[in-house]
Computed example of a mutant assay.
Amino acid sequence: MTPLVEVVLKRINLRMSTSVMIGHPADESFIKYLLKWLHQHNEVLNVEEIAQWAIKNHWSEREIKNIAYWIKLIVEGKQARIKYIPLFAENYFSDLLVEARNSQL
């Protein structure tokens, strides 16, 4: 797993652990948006590696199945529908890149 994929998974994990509405479509949209962003940046989305990471971080079986399904859709070029376009701070994505780069040092 690349450092950038891991950084994004940590952000997803943080969102899931602090969300007051677990399973809300906005949370789902947030995850799908980030997965699509990773794919557009040529990051390898290995379902098995991500599932193992998710298990270690105590994600539920349902959450793991959902993310695996969304990854499959994205990688196959199919539509993973985003119901709510997430709002990100202006520097959100550049911060992800910097954090991933710094994690390699």
Rank of each mutant, 00 (worst) to 15 (best):
L34G: 02
S103G: 00
V5T: 02
I12L: 07
R81S: 14
Y69V: 05
E28W: 10
V98K: 05
S103V: 01
W53A: 00
K32E: 01
L35D: 04
M21F: 15
Q79F: 11
E49F: 11
N46D: 15
S17A: 13
S60T: 01
I85Y: 10
E61M: 11
Y69S: 12
N57T: 01
I71A: 05
V7S: 09
I64L: 03
E99A: 05
W53R: 03
N42R: 12
N102F: 13
K65T: 10
N57F: 04
L34V: 06
L96Q: 06
L34K: 06
I50Y: 14
S19G: 03
E43C: 06
Q52G: 11
E6W: 03
S103R: 02
E49S: 07
S60R: 00
W59G: 03
W53L: 01
D95C: 09
T2N: 10
F30T: 00
S94G: 00
V8S: 05
R15C: 06
K78D: 10
R15Y: 08
K10N: 09
A54C: 12
E48F: 13
I50G: 01
S19T: 06
I12M: 08
Q52M: 15
A80L: 04
N13K: 09
V8M: 09
P86R: 02
I12G: 05
G77P: 00
P3I: 02
R81W: 10
E49H: 13
N13Q: 15
E48Q: 15
R62G: 11
V5K: 03
W37L: 00
G23R: 05
I67G: 09
I64M: 02
H58V: 01
R62N: 13
I64Q: 05
A89Q: 13
L4H: 10
N46W: 06
A68D: 12
E63F: 07
W70H: 10
E76S: 12
P25S: 05
A68P: 08
E90G: 11
W59L: 04
P3V: 00
G23Y: 03
L34M: 07
I31F: 11
S17Y: 12
L4E: 07
E28G: 08
G23P: 04
E63Y: 08
P3A: 13
N13F: 06
R15S: 07
L87F: 15
F30K: 05
N102V: 10
A80K: 04
V47E: 15
N66I: 12
I74C: 02
S17M: 10
S17T: 14
L34N: 11
R15N: 08
K65G: 14
V75Q: 04
I50F: 12
L4Q: 07
I50V: 01
V98G: 08
A100K: 01
T2D: 15
S29D: 02
K10T: 03
Y33N: 10
Q52N: 15
R101Q: 15
V8K: 05
L35Y: 00
E43P: 09
Q52P: 08
N102T: 06
L9Y: 07
P25E: 08
H58I: 10
V44K: 13
Q104E: 15
L105D: 14
S17P: 04
L45N: 03
F88L: 05
W53D: 06
